[in-house]
Amino acid sequence: MRIKTATAFVLGLTMYLNGLFADEKPTVAILATGGTIAGTGTSASSNAYSAGDMAINTLIASAHGVENLANLKFNQVANIPSPDMNDEVWLKLAKAAQEYLDDDSISGIVITHGTDTMEETAYFLNLVLKTNKPVIITGAMRPATALSADDPIDLYNAVAAAASEEAKGKGVLIVMDDRIFDARDCSKTNTSTLDTFQSWNSGALGYIDFGHIKFYKAPLRKHTMDTEFNIKEIKFLPKVDIVSEYEGGITDILKFVASRPDVKGIVVAGVGDGNLYNGYRQAYV
């Protein structure tokens, strides 16, 4: 009898609290940049489409029920396919994101993005934004007009994560295909499958099932509040190129890139654990 009374009391209290705070939904800002998630196709069974056709308000209409999770604000920062991502949009996006994050009325933000360069944008923002609020990047592998399009559930889950307590203080997160990943370790691993985003070396941080969030771990590498980088201080990013190593060596290409005065650094995508062709191996620390 005592247990029943306690349960009834708790239920009553919950209903009372729900009623009391009914109008106090969190507010989430959605910053759209384009990509497949905003794409429209020529037919439902084709993957031929034009990325970035749809504006964010059209896009959000497909994520039924998302309005119950949060009050939403929209900002169409850009509308480009993500292979066209560039420094200009990066800086504009990061500065806009920081403004929303500095606003006390905003609980968290969602950034919609094409999948091709999503991991680069995620890691960039992870290092330059100053916030403990959730910053969620999401996208889609299929255009909205395709069979079993993934944009409605990805958007729904991303908004749920951005509105949540659980996603705070974990840096920039990628939410795709019911999984939650940290920005540093997550990569696109397949050209077409819905589960393309993976963190091969460390696994997902958690899962999200129709907005229900389960975290199992948090990133340990420094991010957001704990980095020495701040988007408010960044006006320009030095030019750095990537050179891929392969059989036979890359000496000529490396010489050419190194000789360019505008190149301030080079990333060599070496073989194996970063090995370079004979002669440059010794320089490796």
């Binding site: 360069t117 991991e119 680069e120 890691y123 960039f124 290092l127 330059v128 540093r184 990569s187 980088f229 960044i234 320009f236 990013l237 030095p238 030019k239 750095v240 190129d241 990537i242 891929s244 301030k264 650094g265 990333v267 060599v268 995508a269």
Partner: peptide, 14 residues
């Protein structure tokens, strides 16, 4: 990966 290494190298070079 090389793309993310590039992001960090650009930032630290500032």
């Amino acid at each position: 990966n090389s793309e993310k290494a590039r992001v960090l190298l650009r930032l630290i070079l500032t």
